[in-house]
Design a protein around this nucleic acid. Structure first.
Lengths: 248, 248
DNA sequence: CGACCGTTTGAAGGATATCAAGGTGAGTGG
DNA sequence: CCACTCACCTTGATATCCTTCAAACGGTCG
């Protein structure tokens, strides 16, 4: 369903939670040193190639995952082979807490978009840490609310914005994680996404993504070079978002 | 933006939390008798006419609301006058906890769809109750996860289902709260929704709702009588949802 | 009655999907 | 080293769903 389903067994990797550079920027830095040790001891470090399934929608949720490096996509499907990408999980972020909290099954599948290292934290450990550390609990709850609000925003956009504006919006977000400022001031955005992936993110088709991208290029909004999108002027891109907004 | 903006000041109503029939079926029955007394003393009971604004998107969230009778709709808008109905809140349900948890502004507006009684519970009280009652906290968290999953489901449906199937889906849910089984076995569904409201729920236009509804009537899926939709056979309606599913 | 809100219906146009074909580039095996 | 394959990308032609604009209808409440 994703790309060339690289179903290699994951390699067990070795990296420590104490040293994890990501930790200082995410929920886990609410942990005390002792708690970090407990986490480090209980978590299962993993390494996947690109296009690997980390967990499957519908199967019982047994814990959360923390992305150490690489990118994971959360994909939700229906009974008929259709699916959408709900969001990308960049390095440093944790996913799966909502399904873990509710103690239910995975509401989406997780697949790696590139070579990815991540840690699995079993529910039992998660619950113990949450029970003993109110701050950790509060942070994950906040993150959950943010995810929810973001989903609501998506619903609003899908209802009112045409593909072109949604794509502009997507590029605006992608540049933060996958953009690199060049010497000439342009921003080269190279996300690990196929046209199909972008289509799945925006609720449209791959052909439409290709067409829209090239239409925007013809209008001077950006340049396309293979999987890389070159942004020359963010204000012009922002204008694409505003443009389609004739009040009703 | 809703209906004829009935901006009457809300009347302060008088009903007790102890006697509230709704309480036994929602989160609040996790409270002890003493806690219920505290809630009852601190909450602000309100009564609104139809089409009244309970709270406004963007303004600071100062607490949660519990719907005692009637129906509330949560509407999210953008800067350009567009808006969608995210969900309906039927009697017995509480809303606003996600914004309250995060301590932020209202991510959506709430408007009454009919004459509605509700209670306002200030954040301060909410926080105290949550801090002292883990079960209450757990229940609201579960509810939040359910709302989030429901939003994700909506995104999937908007991406893949045509209006007709989404409408069938909506009717399927509406019948649970607003349907009445008649002697002849048919189900009369009369939700407090205009065509525009339904359109806002499905991310489409009112004309499309009217047309689709009548098209379904012509196909014998249902009957339309003003604002009432008469369902004769739920399996046929279910079939409408399945129909549009040619796997990709 | 007459104004108003909501609903219905028609006609036309547009955005996007669908179907189909060809192109490109990287990896693979002869 | 080249041909082959496979995934991904592009592009064109056409179809369709839905929107938009416009007009008329119906109930309801002053």
């Amino acid at each position: 369903m994703g790309r060339q389903e690289q179903s290699l067994n994951p390699t067990v990797a070795t990296f420590s939670c104490h040293d994890c550079m990501r930790r200082s920027h995410n929920e886990w830095n609410a942990l005390t040193s002792a708690e970090t040790a407990e986490l480090c001891q209980a978590r299962v470090p993993l390494r996947h190639g690109a296009g690997a399934m980390v967990c499957h929608q519908g199967e019982p949720s047994t814990g959360v995952y923390c992305v150490v490096s690489g990118t994971v996509a959360l994909r939700k499907g229906d009974d008929h082979g259709h699916s959408v990408l709900l969001r990308l999980v960049p390095a440093g972020e944790t996913f799966g807490y909502s399904d873990c909290f509710a103690g239910q099954h995975w509401s989406a599948s997780a697949e790696t978009m590139e070579t990815t290292e991540l840690c699995f934290i079993p529910r039992r450990v998660m619950n113990r840490l949450l029970a003993n550390n109110v701050e950790l609990s509060r942070r994950f709850q906040t993150h959950l609310v943010r995810d929810y609000n973001s989903a609501k925003e998506t619903i609003l956009q899908q209802a009112w914005l045409p593909v072109r504006a949604r794509l502009a919006h997507l590029l605006m977000r992608l540049k933060d994680h996958f953009g690199r400022m060049e010497k000439d001031g342009t921003i080269h955005v190279t996300p690990p996404l196929t046209r199909q992936d972008m289509a799945d993110l925006l609720g449209t088709r791959q052909e439409t993504i290709a067409r829209t991208l090239h239409a925007m290029a013809k209008d001077g909004v950006l340049r396309v070079r293979g999987r890389t999108v070159i942004l020359t002027d963010l204000r012009v891109l922002q204008g694409e978002i505003e443009r389609d907004a004739g009040a009703s």
